[in-house]
Computed example of a mutant assay.
Amino acid sequence: MNFTQRAIAPLVLALVVAGCGSQPAEQEKAEKEEGHAGEEGLIRLTPQQVAAARIEVALPSRGGTGAITLPATVEGDPQGMQVVSAAIGGKVVALTRNLGQDVRRGETLAIVESREAASLKAEVEAARARLALAQSNLRREQRLFAERVSPEQDLIAARTAATEANIALRLAQQQVSAAGGGGGGLNRLGIGSPISGQVIARSVTLGQTVAADAELYRVANLSQVSVNLSLSPADAGRVRPGSTVEITAPGRRTTARVSFVSPILDEGTRFVPVIALIDNRAGQWRIGEPVTAAISVASSSSGIMVPAGAVQTVEGKPSVFVRVPQGFKAIPVALGQPSGNAVTILSGLSGREQIAVANSFTLKAELGKSEAVDED
């Protein structure tokens, strides 16, 4: 062996020994990473992927309150909506309001022309004339009685006639008032609005002949609207007048109050009708609009509460997805009684974890995919 070979041999030996020594360390590191990647129930997601999947996280809440969430429809307050009808038949000769216009209580909405209107007003004029005559006779009899010219019975008769004439006039005036009143002519009656509000429907056109009691307008006071809800008897037992109801729609949110909880089940649905009132002075809610109502109720448990949508079934067990640095991890839990749209967690969570509360089904689907890949 020459000098060059003797110099290279120790160097080759050192490299071989070093290579043999590093191989177990690298293999151990790879095996560790492989085992970590296959951690049961773990879904690896970056923050960008979590945001793209629209997965919302939140802390579980402690019991005490819950909510019953259900769809509803905005309706007019029954006490704030009135039908304006014609008390007598006739021809519509004037309409003073169009759809959407405001009106004050007592303002004329329509004028109806008819023979019946002429008859009612003529009766008022005749009754007024009879009263004037009866009052004149009464004054004369009072003077004659004071002069001891006329007997007392004549005075009594004159007083009685004046009283009857006054009653007849008031009756005739009330009949005109019930039919409408005003109108600007002997054969015309004006139909006034019974409440202040907004015209939401008009059923007639100018010149149309209408029958008695025909609907002319609908007027609604929309400063307060309502939502009608249907609850199961069990849920209705936890709701009281005054309970808070959160009303939501795309881009809007407000708070309503329960005003009525029916003591009787609806015969058709076998549910309990509940009415909640919304302050609508800002005019942001429209009648017929679909909304989501969440009624705040007392929880029957003081345990950890999570939204019902946060619970998914993983390998036959109820589970929630807890946020971890690598993404999310499915944690099996024991469930208690539901409370509206929330579920009580008896065990499995400490209450300090951040859990997926929206779109958790996406995580369940991703977990299923990763398990299928591992099996392959």
Rank of each mutant, 00 (worst) to 15 (best):
Q23D: 10
Q23L: 15
P24W: 11
A25C: 04
A25V: 14
E26H: 14
K29D: 06
A30P: 00
A30W: 09
E31S: 12
K32L: 11
K32Q: 15
K32F: 09
K32P: 00
G35Y: 00
A37D: 13
A37V: 01
E39T: 14
E40D: 13
E40T: 09
I43N: 05
R44Q: 14
L45V: 08
L45N: 07
T46N: 09
T46L: 03
T46Y: 03
P47V: 02
Q49W: 01
A51Q: 12
A53P: 00
R54Q: 12
E56A: 12
V57Q: 10
A58T: 09
L59P: 00
P60W: 10
G63C: 06
G64M: 05
G64W: 05
I68P: 11
T69S: 13
L70H: 03
L70D: 02
A72S: 11
V74K: 06
V74L: 07
E75R: 12
E75A: 13
D77R: 01
P78I: 00
G80N: 13
M81W: 04
Q82H: 07
S85F: 04
S85A: 14
I88C: 06
G89L: 01
G90D: 03
V92N: 07
A94F: 01
A94P: 06
T96V: 03
L99K: 01
Q101F: 08
D102K: 10
D102H: 11
V103M: 07
R104V: 00
R104K: 15
R104I: 00
